[in-house]
Structure formats: C-alpha cells, structure tokens
Design a protein around this nucleic acid. Structure first.
Lengths: 339, 339
DNA sequence: TTTCATCGGTTAATCGATTAACCACTTTGC
DNA sequence: GCAAAGTGGTTAATCGATTAACCGATGAAA
C-alpha cells in the first residue's frame, strides 16, 4: 500500500492543475470548468480513490465541518443518548460530525472543554445540560456560534431549546381529569431543578382551577428515586382523604408508587390511576400495567439545536431563538375512571 | 475585539522568530531555547491569550489528536453511555477528543462513517458494537489503527475487548450454588447474540457439573423483554419440578420474573432466588428486593480500548491483543437459601 | 479593424503551524 | 593554536488543500 493520493495526484492523472481539479470536484468557480474536463477529473479521483484531506481544507477555508457537543453528563443520564442521537443525525445530514466532551457539570472543566474545542476550530458549539437548567454562557465561548440544549440563559441572549414541561404536565393531567379524577396527588423531589418547579406549579394551578386545595395532596422527598417514590407513596396513600390518582415527578418514582400500591392491595388503574413524566423506555413500557407518561423529547431537541446552530453559521447576525419543544403523552394503561 | 492571535503574533510580541516561539511553547528542539527566552515567549502567549490552531498543526504533524468512535447504536442502548464515557475519559486524559458517528448497524453506513472520519484525519478508530458481536473489520479502514469495542474478529487480527461473559455467568451462578441451590432455571432469548450463547452454555455446563440435567429447567422466548420474561417465568414456574432459583439472560427479563413471582404468590428471595446479567442502573437497584446481577463493564471496556489504541499509535507494529474484561457481580438481595 | 466579453483554464499566494538545515559566536579539549 | 562541540537562535520549506488574479484564444459587436 502506498500513500493516500493527494489532490495533486488527481490533477496530474487528469492532466490539469490542482486549481482545476479542486474546482471540478467541488463544483465551484462558476462556469470555468468544461464538462469533459470535469468528468476526466472525477474519473481520475475515483480511479485513485481520492479522499480530500479536510484538515488542509479546513486550514484554508476556516471551516472544519465539526460541531462541538459539550454535555454536563453525557453518559450518566439515560436520556443523553437520544439527545446526542438527534444532534448527530441532523449534523450528519448536513455533512457535519460531532466532537464530544463531557464535563461532569464542573464549570472549570466546561471552560477547558470549550477551549479544547475552539483550538480544534469547530464551527459551532452545542451546550447541553441534562436537566433543563438555567445557565450563563461562559465568556470563553467568545464569538463561537452556540446553542443551548435542554438549558437556557436568564436573558435569552443565546438560542436555546427546552422541553415544554408545562404543556407536558397539562397533558398527563388531562388524561386524569378526562377520566374524571379531581383528587390528584403529586409526588415530587426536593432537588432544585427547573423541571421540578414547573411540574409542581402547573399541577398546583390545575388543581386550584378544579377548586381543589393542592397542599394536602402533595408529598416531597429528598430525591427522585424509586425507593423514595415508594416511601412517599405509602405516606400519601395513608392520608385520610386519599387521592384517586397520582402524578409522579418521574418514572423512577412511579416505579416505587407501583410497589406501594401493590403492598396496600390497591390495583392500578382500578383503585389508583398513575401518570408520570420522562417516559423512559426501560421503565414506562416495562411496568405492569404500562405507565402513561409525558415524554421528554430529547431526540427532537437534539435535532432542533443543530438545525438552529447551522442557521446561525449561515447568518451570524440572526436573532437568537428560544424554543419550547412539546412533550407528547405516551398513553398506556395506568389510567381508569375513579369509582 | 480583534482576531485570535497566531503564533506569529506571539513571536513578534516576544521579539523572536515563529520557530523559536513554537519550540518554546512546545518544549521541543532540545536545549536550543534559553530559559529566559522561553519565559518571554510564554508570557507573551499568556498575555495575548494565544491558543494554538490545531488544524494547522495537524496539517503539518499529521496528527489531529482526535479518535473516531463508530458505534452501531450509540444512543438506543442504555449501555452506550458508559462505554462512550470510558473512552472519552481515557482519551481526554491523553489530550484526545472523540469524534462520534452512529451507523444504526448498517454496513454501508459504517463504511461511509469510516470514510468521513478518515477524511478528517483522525489518528485512530474505535469500532463498537453494542452486543458483543463477532465482526469483520471493514477493508476501508486500511491502515488506520483500530480497536474493537464489545466486539471481536473471528481471527484475532485486530485488538479487541469484550466482557467475560463466562466469568460473569459463573459469578452469579456461584451466588446461587453458594447459597445451596442446585435446581437453577435459566430463562433466555432466542436472539442470536454472542452473549446469549455464552451465558446459556456456561449455565448448562455448570448444571451438568452439579449432576443436574439442564434442559427441563430452560425456557427460551423470542426476545429479551420484560413482558416475555414474565411469560417465560410463568411457564417455567408452573412446571412440576419447579426450580428454586432462576438465572435470567438480562435485567429486563428479570423484571418480568419479579412480576410473575408476585402473581404466583412466591416471595423473592424466600421462595425463589433470582440472579441476572447486565446490572442496568435503572432496573437492578430499583427492583425490590434489589437484584443481584453480573455487571457489564462498559466503562472499563471503553477505557481499555482507548489505552490500547494509544499504544498502537505509539507502536504500529505492536501485536494485537484480545482482552476479556471481568464482569463483577453486583450483590443485592435477591438470593437466599432454598428451603 | 479594433475592442471586449467569454471560455477554459493556470499561477501563485495563502491558511498557521512544525521542523530540517543553517549560522554566528563561545567554549573546550588536546 | 585549531578543530570540535555547544549555545541560542533564524531562515525557509512544508503539510494539502482553496481561491484571487491573471492569461491566451476565440468569437461577436461596434
């Protein structure tokens, strides 16, 4: 095996200059290149198995066709995959590749990651947090085009996409009210994430609209785990005016609710309806009966963020956009009429 | 704010040539650079906020400090994250970044992905399949250094790392035999993945060693889902000489087994011990009682693969290595003595 | 007949680093 | 006293593309 052919090799084989070869292969330079010359160059390139060296090209054009993806926890959350996948697919379709860095949420690491990406001359950056946080874009990002993923700035100065938590909450609550429930409990975490606040407030509003005082129907636990979901449910279901339905902060807590219900001899959905948030593929469809849950649209958010980033690459003057991505309800079998 | 400073700007500010500046910043060129000059250059670089342009450097040095990660399903499997994370961490520590491509398992897409990565002059490639497959390395990889992740070649011609499925299976089975079980059922999928074959055969051997005929204790279902795990368990537990313990192909099936046991009035672990494989964080610790499961060491495999790849970059002549990564048993509360 | 597009290219500069080759001046060894 | 070795740099070539500027024919318009 000899070396990879360079553009100069293709040009020589086709009997033209490298300038002509470049223009023929890239369809640039307007009408300069004769159709038959173009074919000769193409044939030579194919013959030699020529692949352009994008490092050299990038040096000249100042474009690398790479996008940096900075995540605060690429791996540890099970959603990350879908977000990356959405971004990956959209990037790929436009001829871009994703350069990934994980920062474990540490601000210093984030700065460093951004620096490492900029050294590599990425064309733009996706800044992803995993739980819909409000964040400040680091200064070090400079003038690099940037889109926030599952996060937003306090002032809307950067483009961003976040899930429509309010809409999703209203969606699953509508499943319950539609079936006739009004005494709808909520079990949530005390962790201070944006998602918690919006889901909680929306639930409160909705219950007040129905003329119900939400506070006696609320349980808060330290974290959103299965075990604490179980404990919280036991407590809530032991209260005098027990709710006929439960809205859980997430699927893991819902899994705990299922166990609590089983132990108390309550059948889901006949004695207790349950809805939840996240629609995790490993949990919601696997529970029995299948859990109705508002889906976090990670794949779509990933796609949207790349499309928006590409728009900003084309037009750096474009005004930033804040997008709310709908959370569709995955309807399964955990809701029935109250009796 | 003006443009990013180049090396030439740093050199000018320090009153030296770009050659000197380069050597001072990179500690190359032996003892050529005087200590005081070096300091002057460093100070100028810091002052200007100089960051090297790695595209230009890469063109000259033919090294991009980037590794291609080709996965057949980066996102859809929940393990992927840990594998990526392991690779990412090891790469980062060595100053490398990961360029990710997902191929959905399509061979044509894989070829294309490899091509796209090679155009970008990545230094090496990680080829990952998600379920421990035996694969042929595509020809198009040419002489690009390459390590297989959770996959191996039929002939051992490439370096690879796969989980020690046999060891893991023996590990969880030892939990059962150690507690006194001998009638150990196995419930598995019919999908033809490497993992299935090894786990199944190891279980068969182990039972024969105990003087037990495995076949009446085996159930196979179409796929490794919770629902089919449930159905399989119902069938197996209804047989005359019901096993006292169950080894499940994966955690999702085990989740179905838990439901079947509950419906049959069998308490885990008192009436039925259960062990499994995969140790998925969303399932094994969340079930009640916690599920004892052999962990797939995805993080460690990811790390190992990068370390091996870096070794091959240093020494392209190095002989390929096939590595078996141990699967430690995550011991929880699903095993008790039989009565 | 002169002028001036148009066609189909070529030449050479350029992107921002690294590095081989060279250079002037001391110091050291014998 | 003179060659060899060491010090501390500089000059210029190079990596492999893209692209602005130029150029020689040819044909048409004035």
């Amino acid at each position: 095996m000899t070396k990879q052919p360079r553009l100069a090799d293709v040009a020589k084989a086709a009997g033209v200059s490298t300038a002509t070869a470049s223009m023929a292969l890239n369809d640039t330079g307007g009408r300069r290149i004769g159709p038959e010359t173009r074919e000769r160059v193409r044939a030579a390139a194919a013959e030699l198995g020529y692949r352009p060296n994008t490092v050299a090209r990038g040096l000249r054009t100042r474009r690398t066709q790479m996008i940096g993806f900075v995540g605060d926890d690429v791996a540890t959350t099970p959603f990350a995959g879908q977000m990356i996948r959405g971004a990956h697919d959209a990037a790929r379709e436009a001829g871009f590749l994703l350069l990934m860095v994980d920062t474990s949420g540490d601000p210093a690491e984030t700065e460093e990651a951004i620096g490492a990406l900029q050294e590599r001359q990425i064309d733009g950056i996706l800044l992803a947090t995993m739980y819909h946080q409000v964040v400040e874009v680091p200064d070090s990002i400079g003038s690099t085009p940037c889109v926030l993923l599952d996060a937003r700035t306090p002032d809307g100065s950067a483009s961003s996409v976040v899930p429509d938590e309010r809409g999703g909450t209203l969606g699953v609550l509508a499943e319950l009210t539609g079936a006739g429930h009004v005494r709808i409990g909520h079990i949530t975490t005390r962790e201070q994430v944006q998602a918690r606040a919006v889901r909680l407030e929306t639930w409160r509003e909705r219950l007040r609209d129905c003329g119900i005082d939400p506070e006696p129907l609320l349980v808060e636990v330290e974290r959103g785990t299965t075990q604490l979901g179980y404990e919280g449910a036991l407590e809530l279901l032991a209260r005098p005016d027990r709710p006929t339905a439960l809205f859980c902060f997430n699927d893991r807590m819902a899994m705990g609710v299922y166990r609590a219900a089983a132990e108390l001899g309550l059948s889901i959905p006949d004695d207790l309806s349950v809805v939840s948030y996240d629609d995790q593929e490993l949990i919601a469809p696997a529970l029995h009966p299948g859990l109705t849950s508002a889906a976090l649209p990670h794949y779509e958010m990933g796609r949207w963020a790349v499309v928006e980033l590409l728009r900003r690459l084309d037009d750096p003057e474009a005004a930033p956009v804040q997008h709310l991505m709908p959370c569709p309800v995955a309807r399964r079998h955990s809701v029935a009429k109250p009796h």
